[in-house]
Design a protein around this nucleic acid. Sequence first.
DNA 1: AAGGCACTTGAGCGATCGTTCCAGCATGGC
DNA 2: GCCATGCTGGAACGATCGCTCAAGTGCCTT
Lengths: 257, 257
Amino acid sequence: MAHDPETTTRDRIVATAMELFVLQGYGATGIAQILAASGAHAGSLYHFFPTKEDLLLATLEERKRLLRPEVLDPIWARYSDPIERVFGLLDGYRQMLQTTGFRHGCPIGNLALELTESHPQVRKVLAELFDLWADAVAACFAEARGRLPADRSPADLARFVLVTMEGAVMLARTHRTLDAYDTAVSQLRDYVERLLVDGSEWHRPNPATRTPNQENRHEVRTDRDAGARRRQRARRHQEVPARVVRRPRRRRRAGQG
Amino acid sequence: MAHDPETTTRDRIVATAMELFVLQGYGATGIAQILAASGAHAGSLYHFFPTKEDLLLATLEERKRLLRPEVLDPIWARYSDPIERVFGLLDGYRQMLQTTGFRHGCPIGNLALELTESHPQVRKVLAELFDLWADAVAACFAEARGRLPADRSPADLARFVLVTMEGAVMLARTHRTLDAYDTAVSQLRDYVERLLVDGSEWHRPNPATRTPNQENRHEVRTDRDAGARRRQRARRHQEVPARVVRRPRRRRRAGQG
DNA sequence: AAGGCACTTGAGCGATCGTTCCAGCATGGC
DNA sequence: GCCATGCTGGAACGATCGCTCAAGTGCCTT
């Protein structure tokens, strides 16, 4: 199989695994599927990574490396106000949910709950990734320190933002509604607004690029694009060959038709 | 194998599966492990449940049935103030994290992220479970309507509580610290306090049974029991035979020692 | 007593899992 | 020219997966 000559086999394996682990989970993604989707062979994969877990760790290290340039910087470039940046970041996850038909949530969250118990080494790296993310948000709040109560810890606020984002993504994916996400984020926004010390200005974002969903402050969202989402879901495509699903060979569910 | 004559085979299978699915996840729990832990045989299991997924659905239905009597009622009995009940509920999850050494989180959350994509029917039931939980919390806020702004939707507030809980559990399990949980919950509490209309009384809980971690309002937690937690983790026990973990037969991780 | 039915026992099926192994190939230093 | 080294291609391994099935057990009805 001929591949992009610019990419090495190792990179293709890591990139493919990173995507599949997030989409399907770690356990549900087979080595065979990674090999097929990346066009590599077992020998190559095991040349670079002694075990599947080592491959996972490599993808997580890659995510650590990419967090700033690929996730934060594009949003930091769009907003200059530090608090606006925080909510711009949250809007990024909203867009991810929307454009992928809820297939992509937070890359870390899925793996966190799946693997904390069974894979201590993975757990550690996931915790570091959470910290990296929270630190970036904390830096925003620290920059906006003048507008926040002096006894407010930026780090605590940042953790609360992360908690809200992860929980909101979970609910949105389960309900398959952006409603769930927007409800949580607008209440978080309301909270932050209430914290602002009197007389300080609330965000005045760059007029150029505006994101949706900020007209509604603490009044709740309207699910503007349910139709588009449904359409999207209808033509949902399998970009990579899915792991073969085991189908029961006999009877299926008696009732419910 | 002789079993408690009071329980039927079906009930033992469901109870065992319910526990294992939550502890280890759905995919990571094998039928063989469920059979071994429940003392049943393959034929019996497949007599009652056509597929593994049907068994999962049965455990989720059981959780729906048990939510009120086993989760809500005990806490409702401890607190009479509706807002206090909400935070009592959150404290219940904190205790679960603490007493199980972070092995038990929210029973629904784990499964939600693992299965939303691949198992639509399961996703639907999980969404119903989330709704059931949120409805119960919304009822609390509705009961406290007089103390909350009139335009506040109890349902939205309840969703925010659920989002916070799920996100906080995720972070706490990943970091293996109650800090992460407490930070989020106390900020949520702070938010609710700020919503309270002037002059209304904040909680005045039953003096008898008090829970920990409510002396700290919006000032952040102290990790009171890190020592106890460490001790707890040290003697962590495997109550059920774990699924056999596939171990690589050759080389392990070169560096790091 | 006999037959029906719900359930149990436990061996075994084909598929897929993560992993292993080795012959082959390209490149670079001698 | 030749060997060492880094990587590829792909068959194969043993274990485990979810699931099947047929014979057996014991209670219920008639």
